[in-house]
Design a protein around this nucleic acid. Structure first.
Length: 300
DNA sequence: CACGCGTGGTA
DNA sequence: TTACCAAGCGT
């Protein structure tokens, strides 16, 4: 319900703050390529910047273009993914590189609609790449944006579990009209959420919009409703899949069934997870009970 | 639409 | 120490 003048004040304060507080990240430099930005966005899905940085640098060194990556077997992408987590992203990134090479002549597509057709590219990533790599004026909504707007505009301590229609309309209404300003606004709000308006302990004293923040003005009320439950971990298939894939990733050649079985004595779960990794295309079964990352060449 | 999917740092 | 959390996506 903010007036145009209030919106303008919000823009000015956030953009001014960003001009001095923004981190120097390699995918934000002027010479960052659309491919580099694309790779960074996929790596940053649910993974912190600090962990992404060294892996991104290595990927750019090895595969400076989508075609370079597409020429490799998918297992190479999975191995180079290291410990970023959610390794299916590596597989989808490889598949996206193949699609870009085959369907877009090796050039990362520039529109949100075309980007959305690529594997591993959802609503957020399509908007982010269209905006940050190509300057398309669109609405970028990630978890940071949702939290910042929940507090500053709506006055809630946290955003809803999943984005609501009203939330997306609020975000869209706040995007500056001019494309270049819109791009900076999007990255600035994300940065504000990452550095200042954090989930656990927001640093309101350092916030450029504390004087305009609805949550702050309401006395920073605690979150209402049931506590959001985190993901279970101990004993989950996710944990087992991670342990299994780690053995494959850190092994040069094919891995014997014996080494697979040494990962865990829980045979039922272990085999279920191995099967699911094969079904996902993350693991390739070979003859005589050996396994390897998909498409990996035989070590000589 | 709710759930499954990795990993490691931090309050 | 132990939950919580980090630029989501696909089914």
């Amino acid at each position: 319900m903010s007036s145009r003048a209030a919106t303008e004040r919000l823009h000015e304060r956030v953009l001014e703050w960003y001009s001095t507080a923004a981190r120097d990240l390699p995918w934000r430099t002027d010479d960052a390529t659309p491919w580099g930005i694309f790779v960074s966005e996929v790596m940053l899905q649910q993974t912190p910047v600090a962990r992404v940085l060294p892996v991104w640098v290595e990927w750019m060194r090895r595969w400076p273009t989508p075609t370079d990556l597409a020429a490799q077997p998918p297992g190479e992408a999975v191995r180079a993914w290291g410990r970023l987590g959610y390794p299916r992203r590596a597989l989808r990134l490889h598949a996206a590189a193949v699609a870009i090479t085959e369907r877009f002549d090796g050039a990362v597509p520039s529109t949100e609609a075309e980007l959305s057709t690529l594997p591993g590219v959802g609503t957020y990533t399509a908007a982010a790449v269209a905006t940050f790599a190509f300057g398309e004026r669109t609405t970028v909504v990630d978890t940071n944006v949702r939290r910042v707007l929940a507090r500053a505009v709506t006055g809630d301590a946290y955003a809803a579990p999943s984005p609501t229609r009203a939330e997306l309309e609020t975000a869209a209404a706040l995007v500056p009209l001019e494309a270049d300003r819109a791009r900076t606004w999007s990255v600035a709000v994300m940065e504000l959420g990452a550095l200042v308006c954090s989930s656990r302990s927001p640093r309101c004293d350092a916030c450029p919009i504390r004087a305009l923040c609805a949550w702050r003005l309401a006395g920073s009320p605690a979150h209402e409703g049931p506590p959001r439950r985190g993901q279970a971990w101990e004993g989950t298939d996710r944990q087992m899949r991670g342990a299994l894939l780690r053995v494959l990733r850190e092994s040069d050649g094919p891995v014997s069934r014996e080494r697979i079985e040494a990962v865990s004595s829980l045979a039922l779960q272990r085999e279920r997870c191995l099967d699911s990794l094969v079904a996902d295309g993350l693991v390739e079964p070979l003859a005589r009970g050996f396994y390897q990352l998909p498409g990996a060449r035989e070590a000589s």
